[in-house]
Simulated scan of single mutants.
Amino acid sequence: MAVKLLLIALFALASSSAILASDPSPLQDFCVADLQSKVFVNGFPCKNADDVRAEDFFRSGLDRPGDTNNYLRSNVTPVNVNQIPGLNTLGISLVRIDYGPNGLNPPHTHPRATEVLAVLEGELYVGFVTSNLNGGGNRLFTKNLKKGDVFVFPEGLIHFQFNTGKTDAIAFAGLSSQNPGVITIANAVFGSRPPISDDVLAKAFQVDKNLIDWLQAQFWTDNNY
């Protein structure tokens, strides 16, 4: 199983590197992130090259399943610049996603990355929604995926994955940014702090303000660890 996980991870990374990265191209061999620096730039400043070690380009543990004991029955394990400082300026990252039966990675976006997802185990129903089309409206693209299938979610578009099988499912995804970010739609709309005005949301969703107040009072699960 460990070998299979490694192969699928390498495939996802290689696939996403072929996509035009949304991050700037590097101007040197590497720029290992100094995560302790107090300097604020668009990315991370570089460590002194003399202090760089092989461990700056390494991460273990993706052979272990994430904990899906939550409301969504899913767990996203990221490997971005915050976990591997050597990814800084390279325009690429990786996630492992575990889904229990009926597990959902809910509608969300990555504001800075395209995602290519490969199913390692199980079956997933996946899809994404386009931005506003000419003439209005948003188009939904969906697909039922099985082991070995691959699907691409374009940069910035709302997308999701749902485990339709009776067993656990596993997927790996490569993303075209060292730090793609994630905006989970329901959490952002109903769980922001401070909350968005219920007048605004009631009008936007064409529902009563009491329903908005109820939604804002709920606990919105974050499956990104």
Rank of each mutant, 00 (worst) to 15 (best):
145 L>Q: 09
53 R>G: 02
89 T>S: 08
169 A>Y: 06
193 R>Y: 04
128 F>P: 10
98 D>Q: 05
69 N>I: 08
157 L>F: 01
110 H>T: 00
173 A>E: 03
201 L>P: 03
187 N>D: 09
67 D>N: 14
67 D>W: 07
199 D>V: 00
188 A>D: 14
154 P>H: 07
223 N>K: 02
79 V>F: 03
113 A>K: 13
183 I>G: 08
142 T>V: 15
14 A>F: 04
19 I>G: 02
133 L>G: 02
106 P>K: 06
202 A>M: 01
155 E>V: 08
28 Q>H: 10
163 N>W: 09
179 N>I: 01
166 K>P: 15
175 L>F: 06
141 F>H: 12
12 A>G: 07
153 F>I: 02
187 N>V: 01
42 N>H: 03
16 S>I: 15
146 K>E: 14
95 V>M: 04
223 N>A: 11
149 D>Q: 14
18 A>S: 10
203 K>R: 15
190 F>N: 11
115 E>V: 11
132 N>L: 14
32 V>E: 01
197 S>Q: 08
66 G>H: 11
189 V>P: 15
188 A>V: 11
212 I>C: 07
139 R>Y: 05
221 T>K: 03
103 G>F: 09
110 H>Q: 00
14 A>E: 11
53 R>D: 13
66 G>C: 09
177 S>D: 01
137 G>I: 07
44 F>Y: 10
82 N>G: 07
197 S>N: 04
121 E>Q: 05
94 L>D: 13
9 A>T: 11
68 T>A: 08
113 A>R: 14
185 I>A: 11
196 I>N: 15
68 T>G: 07
12 A>L: 05
102 N>F: 06
105 N>M: 06
122 G>K: 12
59 R>E: 01
13 L>W: 07
109 T>Y: 12
182 V>E: 02
17 S>R: 14
147 K>F: 12
20 L>N: 09
184 T>M: 07
